[in-house]
């Protein structure tokens, strides 16, 4: 009686393990058949999907973020537009083979960007003024035909308020230092970091920048 009871318990345990393993192994493999299809794959919205993976510098602490950014603001996202941009610059310092790989802007394919109009609420670092509207760009977005999905990113939301750590450029909208650590959401005067951002930020930290 006891023996048969134990047999039942062990069998149920093993069967559950097998079923869980089967589910797990199916989820871990990509859908190669779909990728290999010769006809165009359409998302449920009828748009083609393009995947972008971007690798960014990672910052270890707030000092590194503050030192690298040439613009730190509290900003409100007013609106956004999708645009292809060619952000390759004309070669500078022609004798520097590292800085100038040998290409011209015309050689580089344009990159899909979402460009946000951001109203500056407060300035902590940099040469902009309150109530000025600046543009901030992020790789990715969508147009009528295609979704350009960026892995591992945190998109800015319209009507959202953020603390932004930005790099500025002469002939291009500003960019967040990276999509995870470059912005902090501001909700009811609380600064909220994204889940993957381990660098804590307090209002006092920002006040020290302006002192």
């Amino acid at each position: 009686m006891m023996t048969s009871k134990w047999i039942s318990v062990i069998s149920i345990f093993c069967l559950t393990t097998v079923l869980l393993a089967a589910c797990g192994s199916n989820e871990s493999k990509p859908d190669n058949d779909r990728s290999a299809a010769s006809d165009v794959h359409k998302s449920t919205a009828g748009k083609q999907e393009v995947l972008i993976d971007a690798s960014f510098p990672k910052y270890n602490n707030l000092d590194e973020l503050e030192n690298r950014a040439n613009l730190i603001i509290e900003g409100r996202v007013l609106s956004s537009t999708f645009k292809f941009l060619n952000v390759a610059e004309r070669p500078s310092q022609p004798g520097d083979d590292q800085l100038n790989p040998g290409t011209t802007p015309a050689d580089s394919p344009p990159i899909p960007y979402t460009i946000y109009d951001v109203e500056v609420q407060k300035v902590y670092k940099g040469a902009v003024t309150e109530k000025e509207t600046i543009q901030v760009k992020q790789v990715g977005g969508e147009n009528q035909q295609t979704i350009f999905k960026v892995n591992d990113t945190s998109e800015l939301k319209e009507e959202g308020d953020y603390i932004m750590f930005l790099a500025t450029f002469d002939n291009s909208p500003a960019s967040l230092l990276n999509p995870i650590q470059g912005s902090y959401e501001l909700v009811n005067n609380q600064i909220i970091a994204s889940d993957k951002n381990l660098i804590k930020l307090e209002i006092n930290d920002l006040k020290q920048l302006t002192e």
Partner: peptide, 8 residues
């Protein structure tokens, strides 16, 4: 190229 953005 020298791109006006922050990614590597």
């Amino acid at each position: 190229a020298q791109y006006s953005d922050t990614w590597y």
